[in-house]
């Protein structure tokens, strides 16, 4: 069977592995939060794995990515180290930002991951600015760089979304705005919050073409994202891509999601893309049950190693407290804890 597998089937198996990695990483993050290893707030990609994997496969290493606070899966798919990402969630000095960013602010400039952003909509104007910067260098063409800016459905109601789309349109910027429509902005439905609940149409007033795709279908997501990015590269025109998806859990790990009906939860679980792809690969003979289990066991090992790495890392120390408050020396900036020196008298 292995010999007869097509390149396309191999690709799907790899996509399945990536989706399983995100799923298991997020389930582990949830556990670690509940064991108080992760503090603050923690937002999971559970249910959105096909969207994350499809988008990140379409995005090239030379492209730039901005996301919201639900950023773990994107960081992993961008090639950031699983252990270092987990360590960042733990707030450890071995994390991708030495514990300064935490779950919501995963950065890696080398991987051109320009951040998760904790403020809803905060990422949109900077992403638009990054696309503007691209127009100052290089020319449009099939090899040109582009920016992808991911956000949730609720964010499309924020002023910054509309201001940014307008700028991208009038300045003709190479940017793809991706809306992960999981149908809930925390506990408020899209229909309650959006005057035009078919969010892909919201680009119309800026003459930005909008496309809606099935966020649970990894190949459909990749196809739609590739087309939008190609348009951004070659024509230097913005695009709006809406991916219909489901969030399997609450807004963050502390949200019991009491606003959801039992029927809604059941619909979300039925649409879960990870078991769906698994069943499809087994049904069409691409994978045996044993092969699927082997992939999952291997990922279990990777996630367990990431947790062990995060756990073993040291906390940031108090002498790092003042680092990077300013990029240049500032007279009134603190450089050390007050300690004994505070009680020295004139």
């Amino acid at each position: 069977m292995k010999q007869s597998r097509t390149a396309e089937a191999d690709q799907l198996v790899e996509f399945y592995r990536r989706m399983v990695l995100i799923r298991k990483f997020e389930l582990s993050a949830d556990q670690m939060y509940k064991r108080a290893k992760v503090g603050g707030y923690c937002h999971l990609n559970l249910g959105e794995e096909a969207s994350v994997v499809g988008l990140m496969d379409a995005l090239r290493p030379t492209d730039y990515l901005f996301t919201n606070y639900r950023d773990h899966g994107y960081a992993l798919m961008r090639g950031m180290d699983t252990g270092k990402v987990m360590a960042e969630l733990f707030g450890k000095s071995t994390g991708v930002s030495k514990g300064r960013g935490g779950s919501m602010h995963l950065f890696d400039t080398e991987k051109r991951m320009l951040g998760g952003y904790g403020i809803v909509g905060g990422q949109i104007p900077p992403a638009t600015g990054a696309a503007l910067a691209l127009t100052y260098r290089g020319a449009p063409g099939p090899d040109a760089e582009a920016v992808m800016c991911q956000m949730g459905d609720g964010t499309t109601n924020i002023g910054a979304f509309h201001e940014s789309l307008n700028l991208a349109a009038v300045w003709s910027l190479p940017i793809v705005y991706v809306v992960i429509n999981n149908r809930l902005g925390m506990g408020t439905t899209v229909e309650m919050a959006a005057g035009e609940p078919e969010l892909y149409k919201r680009g119309a007033s800026y003459r930005i073409p909008g496309v809606r795709a099935d966020g649970g279908d990894v190949l459909a997501v990749r196809q739609a994202a590739t087309e939008a990015l190609d348009q951004a590269r070659t024509e230097r025109r913005p695009a709006l891509l809406e991916l219909m998806s489901y969030r399997l859990r609450g807004h963050s790990v502390v949200d019991p999601a009491r606003y959801r009906s039992a029927a809604d939860v059941e619909t979300a679980q039925k649409a879960d893309p990870v078991p769906a792809l698994r069943a499809q690969l087994i049904a069409d003979g691409t994978l045996t049950e044993k092969q699927a289990a082997a992939i999952e066991t291997k990922v279990d090992g990777e996630v367990a190693a990431a947790v062990a790495f995060a756990d073993a890392g040291p906390d940031p120390t108090p002498d790092q407290l003042f680092d990077y408050a300013y990029a240049t020396p500032v007279p009134n900036a603190p450089t050390a804890l007050p300690g004994e020196r505070m009680v020295v008298l004139p």
Binding site: G39, G40, G91, K92, G99, R100, G102, D315, P316, T317, P318, Q320, L321, F322, A325, N332, A333, P334
Partner: peptide, 9 residues
């Protein structure tokens, strides 16, 4: 006079 620091410190 600095941005609010990380949780662990």
């Amino acid at each position: 006079h600095m941005p609010y620091p990380v949780a662990r410190v």
